[in-house]
């Protein structure tokens, strides 16, 4: 238990930063969001001690649902130890004094920026997304008054205009992240800028999904076991990205890979974006084609040291 949590125990500082009235307000928004899957619930987003774009929406949602016994995992682009994840994990360690982890299966609350873990989540877990722009219609319709009406009336032709444009200009649907989905056959929703590779995971997911947009002051949710369909055309069905190689370090296939530049001579490799998944596999003895490469070892090694 760290210093801040002890201070909280003395009643001088509130658990998980937010005051209880704010948490109450946010929990109400969350409950409403769960009751209407995919619907953007406005909420009175607070100023947080970090800039917009750093996950102020996700942080407020997480702060409102955390209990003392929770174990928190923070993901930034699949990784536990990049700037955003490290800062936010530190924030909650300091203000809530709760346990944190890198291990997906150990966590009860996972806050993520732009990835969903490769490992299946369970009913006992909550996945909190950081959302920059919650409105999927914003690209084509700048008026909030109009997009709200469009949601209310299920007036979603515009969404397909965007996909039509993609096919017309690229020969296929070129949207690769923030790929729009229809939730529970009703609301069109932006699944935050996760790669579309992760879209099938949010369909019928066992864990509760909560989405928080701090700057835009919106919360939305997908309850466990909810139908989530990625929008497409009959003759251009939804497809996820395919990688022609396995992970260079752990050899995993059918996972989302990041490109890593190894040197300035064109050396590069593709490795699991989900760093915890990759490490676990390597610990189990799996090895990818580049696992023995000295440069790769350095990259792989860096993920277990907290150097930042």
């Amino acid at each position: 238990m760290n210093d801040t949590a002890e201070i909280y125990d003395q009643g001088e500082y509130n658990f998980a930063y937010l005051d209880e009235q704010t948490k109450r307000m946010i929990r109400r928004a969350i409950l409403k969001g769960i009751a209407i899957p995919g619907y953007q619930v406005p909420f009175a987003s607070r100023e947080m001690p970090m800039p917009y774009g750093w996950g102020t929406g996700g942080v407020q949602v997480t702060a409102s649902i955390l209990g003392k016994d929770d174990c928190l995992k923070m993901i930034d682009q699949g990784s536990d130890d990049t700037t955003n994840a490290v800062s936010l994990r530190g924030f909650f360690e300091k203000t809530a004094g709760i346990r944190t982890t890198y291990e997906t299966s150990e966590a009860t609350v996972i806050q993520t920026r732009h990835r969903i873990p490769e490992k299946n989540l369970t009913e006992n877990q909550v996945l909190v997304f950081q959302v920059p722009i919650p409105e999927p219609l914003r690209f084509l319709e700048p008026r909030e008054t109009e997009t709200r009406k469009m949601h209310a009336l299920e007036d979603y032709g515009l969404m397909h205009v965007k996909l039509y444009e993609d096919i017309a200009k690229n020969g296929h649907i070129a949207t690769t992240y923030a790929y729009p989905v229809k939730v529970n056959d009703r609301y069109v929703m932006d699944p935050s800028p996760t790669p579309k590779f992760d879209n099938p995971k949010i369909d019928q997911m066992e864990a509760l999904q909560l989405y928080g947009a701090g700057r835009e002051k919106r919360i939305y949710a997908i309850p466990p076991y909810t139908k989530v369909k990625s929008l497409d055309f009959e003759d251009y069905p939804f497809e996820v990205q395919k990688f022609d190689k396995p992970c260079g370090l752990c050899g995993a296939e059918n996972v989302y890979l990041d490109e890593v530049i190894l040197d300035d001579k064109g050396g590069r490799m593709f490795v699991c974006s989900d760093s915890d998944y990759c490490e676990e596999r390597r610990a189990e003895g799996h090895a990818g084609p580049m696992a023995a490469d000295p440069a790769a070892i350095q990259i792989g090694g860096a993920t277990v040291e907290e150097t930042i």
Partner: peptide, 12 residues
């Protein structure tokens, strides 16, 4: 095509 898509046409 927008109106067609608005009334449910889903074949590109």
């Amino acid at each position: 095509g927008e109106r067609l898509m608005a009334v449910g046409d889903r074949h590109y």
